[in-house]
Each structure stands twice: as structure tokens, then as C-alpha cells.
Design a protein around this nucleic acid. Structure first.
Length: 589
RNA sequence: GCAUCCAUAGCUCAGCUGGAUAGAGCAACGGUUUUCUAAACCGUAGGUCAUAGGUUCGAAUCCUAUUGGGUGUACCA
């Protein structure tokens, strides 16, 4: 496209004797209803031409046809100059760039980025909200990798605190030494079960205290169970052996359970951090802030920062008794992560209910003069809601991650079997295929929506397998693979003199945008952008596939080779792009 | 109250830094298989881009206000 921009710049210079910047040149795809492939919007140029849009477009059109070999003809519609570009330009572009094995890959850019995602609590199993987080985090990490970043995926596990003590206490009281083995339950589900039991019993206590005349607030504080849980937390912090060993045991159950879910989701981490190791961090940072005068101390000894000038509030960073709050830890953890990895950028994949927290966190670090603070980003995403409202673990109104995955695989099996195309596949391949398709549908469903938008999930309406879906793209890939193998395809460039169908040039143009899309999606931290692009590619390929006569039987060898090349590049783009989204594409289905 | 995000077809969503008559999928209706995979393709129908102003040659896109919804505004994490 650069040849065109330069030519237009030269044209403006020659026609109107004006030097203009590139930003004046606005090139876009020609709309389907007009002739041509590329369109120049001339409105920004009329300032310099001092002529009407139509006259300017004609001037430029004539100039380009005369001086630029690739431009064969033009037409003008209002202020739009539509250009027909020579076939050989597209053929050359295809042969030289798209067919190159390195097409769509980026060289290392020397930048490091950390992506923190998942960050589960160890008192309950993962649900649909976590699934969105995990898929998003993984995909963004892969997207950055594809752009040449050196990426570290980290998981900061919230493995301590009052919520875990609740599960522990309930297990102690009502668990009868139940284990995942004895209960035949995944460890995270077993621990989650006791979290729910705690809540039920706790509520009972609150009710009876209220009947005795206490207010709701007082009852919540005075219930024996919550007091016991609080005592357990104190015992944990003071290193009580019994409590610690119970904590270790139950956490290990949970981790075993999480590992299974992570494996099924296909996500992974380069490093785990645990809050039990980091919860005391940050006090040094508070000291530092006091010395620098960024923080101030109130009479009771609590430490604050005043952010009112930045449109925020006063924010506590250390309690009067010297203990930490959430943001204290995060200040310390941010410093530690930077010390560990020395990264240029750090992404926190966390739900949008923490927008305010991260705004404050980043602002504080900036005020503390941390040079790395401007590389911090909160990748905020919307909640996943059910038609009935918000998911709540304590009340059991959640879509469980493991259940959902299992359901998706079952649905994939049913749909695949109903089509009857895989009956002769080996059993193992079939199982793997159902898993690929089920997960592909789920992942694509969650990733195709812009992260910041909230997502409504209706469990009664199953996730689609047709149209703008993961399986559609997987199917397109499998179809191409089958075509290539039937044709005994080997890659080889073709001559550039043959005629191209409109759909073929369209496909070349769309495919050639793959690197640009990868770059734009990474810049926006948006797997959704990539998803939608891949869908466009698959759709256009299917149109092409239906339009041309059977390629395998094509007698013109150059024609046949070109169409196979085109199919092959399409398959390559689909596979590479889907892989960034964490979705595998089958060879056949 | 204040802050912040969202609002596009019946439903789920695209629409990049403002560009032509706002696009897909699902659902509905009709069609395509003696030819490479019909999880596909083609067509019909479906819109006051929440509302009202403003900026501009040009606004779904930018600005302001209003309405509706989400989230936050804890010495919880």
C-alpha cells in the first residue's frame, strides 16, 4: 500500500504544488457495489487542491493511471476515488509475501511484558467468570508473544484470609475427615462445598441471634462461627501448627483441582505467586512514601494518601495498628514483580469491579516516582451475568467451570455424531475432536466479545456451533486440509499473469491484513478483534470455495496451483490466529 | 451524591484513528448437494445506531446534557 501513498503524495505535489503529510491520505477498501479494490477519500485533499471533491478525484485518478503502473483504471463517486489495481500486483503480493513461511510472524522486539491473570481464591472452584478471565489472560499473552514480546504469565493465588478459614472451619466441624478420594470429588469442589456449608450455618446463627433481639449488624459480628473463623486466621498468622497443616492439606486439594481445570482450559503459567508469601509486603513501600512525603500519618497512626487533587479520594494504605490492607500488599507485590522480571509492561487481567483500585494503585506508584509505573495496565473486563443476575459462589448460583466444560464436550459429541461424518475415525481421534470442538465453541463464544463489555450467558440456551462460532472456523480449516490432501498439494508460487476472480482478490486483500490485525489486536489487548477477523477470513474462504469449480479437478495447472496456494495460506492464517486465541483446529472433522 | 463503563435488527454481537446506502450470526421465510466436507453457500424480511442539542463538507463514531442499566466509592480481598 506504500507505493500508493507515495504516489498520491507525489501527485498532490505535482498537481497542486503542495507538500502534505501522510495523514491526509486516507485509503480504504472499495465498497462492494463499486468497481475497484482501493479507494482514496479525497475530502481531506480539497483543502490543498482548492477544487471540488469530484474534480480533485478526477485529477488524482488521471495522474495515478498515467504514472503508476499498478493503477489500471479509476472511477469517481462523490468524493471517493475508486482505483482498480492490476492483477499482477495482487499476484505478486500473494506470491512474495503471503506465501512466505514467515508471513504473519514478528521478530522479537526486545520488550518484556508480564501478564497476571486467573488469580483464584482457594476456597471455591472456578466458575464462568474465572473462565473468561483465564481465556482472556491467556489469549492476550499469546497475542503479545505473537507480536514479538517476551511474555511472562503469572498467577497470583489468593491462598489466605478469612474466606479460607471459613472452609477450613466447616470441614473441621462437619467434614468427618472427608477427602477428595473418599468423597469422589475434585479437591476444589470439596473445599467449595464446605465454604457453602459454613455460610449456611453462619446464616442460621445470625437468624437465631436476631430472634434474641440483636440487630443484623451485631448478629453478623457476634455469631460464634465467624468469631471462630477469625480466631483461626489469627492462629494461622501466628504459625499455629495444627491450623497451618490443615490449611496446607486443604490448599493442596484445591490446587490439584485447579490443575485439572487449567489443563482442560489449555491455560498455563510461567510462575505462581502466593499471597501467603506476599501479604506482608508493602510496608517498606509505605515507609518510602512517608519519607518522600507522598503519604501522611494521621494522629491514630494510620497512613493515608490524599488523591483529591486527582479527582479521587483519600485512601488508607496502612491501618493504625500497622497491619496491611489490600492495596498495601499490591504496592509491595508490584515492586517485587518488577524486581523479579524487570519488565517494560505489566498487565493485570482483573474484572472491572476493581477499576478504581487499580487506578489508585498505579497513581500511587507513579507518585512514588517508580519509573516502571507507566508500564502498568489494568485489563479490565465485564462480568459474566446470568439471566437471573449475578453469580454468587456462596449461594450456589454459579455456572461451574468444570461442569460447563464437560457439557460443551457432550454437546460437541452429539452434534458431531448427528452429522455422521466421523464414524470411521479412530476412537481416540473422536474423543479428542469432541474436546477440541466443545472447547473451541466455548472459548470463541467468550473471546469474540470486546473484553470491557459485560457478557450475558444463558445456560438454557446452548452455545452455538453454527455461524460466527469457533466450530465454523475449525470446520473451514478442516475442509481446507482435506482439500489440500486430496490434491496432493505442495507449495509453489505461480505466474502472475492469470486472471483473478473478484472473490480471489478480496481474499488476498483480507489475508494480507493478518499481520496488521495481529498488531492492532495486541495494541488494544483485544482478542475479540482477532476473533472477528478470523471469522471474516473463514466466511470469505467458504464463499470462494463455493464459487469456483472443484479445484482438485481443475485442468489448468497454474490455476489449480494458485487456488491451492490461496487455500493453504487461508488455513495457515486460521490455524495461527486460532492458536493465539488458545483454540486448536482439527485436520479433519 | 460523586466516579466510571455500557446502550446498534426480536436475540447475540461487528463497525479500526469521523467517510459512500450502518454490517454479520442466531431465530423466521425461500432456495442450493450425480463435482473437492451442507458445522457450508445464495436470497427475502428485519434499524429513528437510547433521547435531545452541538462541532464538521461528512457523526453510530467526537463534545455537552438527559434517560436507562452495570460497577465502584470499606481500617474486606
Amino acid at each position: 500500500m506504500n507505493f500508493l501513498i507515495n504516489a498520491v503524495l507525489k501527485g498532490i505535489k505535482q498537481l497542486y504544488n503542495e507538500d502534505v503529510t501522510e495523514s491526509v491520505i486516507n485509503i480504504q477498501d472499495t465498497r462492494k457495489e463499486f468497481e475497484g479494490q482501493l479507494t482514496i477519500v479525497v475530502f481531506p485533499i480539497i483543502k490543498y487542491s482548492k477544487k471540488s471533491p469530484e474534480a480533485t478525484a478526477s485529477d488524482l485518478g488521471e495522474y495515478l493511471v498515467e504514472h503508476v503502473e499498478e493503477v489500471v483504471s479509476f472511477n469517481v463517486v462523490k468524493g471517493f476515488l475508486n482505483l482498480s489495481i492490476a492483477n499482477h500486483y495482487w499476484s505478486d503480493l500473494f506470491n512474495n509475501e503471503l506465501l512466505d513461511p514467515t508471513f504473519g510472524t514478528f521478530k522479537p522486539n526486545g520488550k518484556r511484558v508480564m501478564v497476571e491473570y486467573s488469580s483464584p481464591n482457594t476456597n471455591k472452584p472456578l466458575h464462568l467468570g474465572h473462565v473468561r478471565n483465564n481465556l482472556l489472560g491467556y489469549a492476550v499473552a499469546e497475542l503479545l508473544k505473537a507480536n514479538g514480546y517476551e511474555v511472562y504469565k503469572v498467577n497470583l493465588v489468593n491462598d489466605r484470609g478469612i474466606h479460607i478459614c471459613k472452609s477450613m472451619l466447616a470441614w473441621q466441624k462437619w467434614g468427618n475427615n472427608e477427602t477428595p478420594e473418599s468423597a469422589c470429588l475434585k479437591g476444589d469442589h470439596l473445599v467449595g462445598k464446605y465454604y457453602v456449608i459454613f455460610d449456611k450455618e453462619y446464616k442460621k446463627e445470625i437468624e437465631s441471634l436476631k430472634q434474641e433481639g440483636q440487630t443484623e449488624e451485631a448478629a453478623k459480628k457476634n455469631a460464634p462461627l465467624i468469631k471462630e473463623a477469625q480466631k483461626m486466621l489469627v492462629d494461622w498468622e501466628s504459625g499455629n501448627k495444627e491450623v497451618i497443616s490443615l490449611w496446607e492439606k486443604m490448599n493442596s486439594w484445591v490446587y490439584a483441582g485447579f490443575d485439572v481445570t487449567y489443563k482442560n482450559l489449555g491455560v498455563d503459567f510461567d510462575k505462581y505467586y502466593y499471597e501467603s508469601n506476599t501479604y506482608l509486603l508493602g510496608k517498606g513501600t509505605v515507609e518510602e512514601g512517608l519519607e518522600k512525603g507522598v503519604f501522611f500519618k494521621k494522629e491514630d497512626g494510620s497512613v493515608w494518601i490524599d488523591l483529591t487533587e486527582d479527582g479521587l479520594d483519600q485512601k488508607l494504605v496502612l491501618r493504625a495498628d500497622g497491619t496491611s490492607v489490600y492495596i498495601t500488599q499490591d504496592l509491595g507485590t508490584a515492586q517485587m514483580k518488577y524486581d523479579d522480571f524487570n519488565m517494560d509492561q505489566s498487565l493485570y487481567v482483573v474484572g472491572n469491579e476493581q477499576d478504581y483500585h487499580f487506578k489508585v494503585l498505579f497513581l500511587i506508584l507513579e507518585k512514588l516516582g517508580k519509573t516502571w509505573a507507566n508500564g502498568l495496565r489494568h485489563l479490565s473486563y465485564g462480568m459474566v451475568d446470568l439471566p437471573s443476575g449475578k453469580m454468587k459462589s456462596r449461594e450456589g448460583t454459579v455456572v461451574d467451570a468444570d461442569d460447563l466444560i464437560a457439557e460443551m464436550v457432550v454437546t460437541a459429541r452429539q452434534k458431531t455424531e448427528a452429522l455422521g461424518k466421523v464414524n470411521n475415525f479412530p476412537e481416540e481421534e473422536k474423543e479428542n475432536l469432541y474436546y477440541q470442538i466443545g472447547l473451541g465453541a466455548l472459548k470463541y463464544f467468550l473471546l469474540k466479545v470486546e473484553p470491557k463489555k459485560r457478557l450475558l450467558f444463558d445456560p438454557s440456551e446452548s452455545i452455538d456451533f453454527q455461524g460466527n462460532t469457533g466450530p465454523f472456523i475449525q470446520y473451514t480449516h478442516a475442509r481446507i486440509k482435506s482439500l489440500l490432501s486430496k490434491a496432493n498439494y505442495t507449495k509453489q508460487p505461480t505466474v502472475n499473469t492469470m486472471d483473478l476472480l473478484i472473490t480471489e482478490t478480496d481474499l488476498i486483500i483480507l489475508l494480507s491484513k493478518y499481520p496488521i490485525e495481529i498488531e492492532a489486536a495486541a495494541k488494544a489487548y483485544s482478542p475479540a478483534m482477532l476473533s472477528n477477523y478470523l471469522y471474516e477470513v473463514a466466511k470469505l474462504f467458504n464463499k470462494f470455495y463455493h464459487e469456483v469449480p472443484p479445484i482438485v479437478k481443475e485442468e489448468d495447472n497454474q490455476q489449480k496451483q494458485f487456488r491451492l496456494n490461496l487455500s493453504s495460506v487461508t488455513a495457515h492464517v486460521l490455524k495461527a490466529g486460532m492458536s493465539i486465541l488458545g483454540i486448536t483446529v482439527p485436520e479433519r472433522m
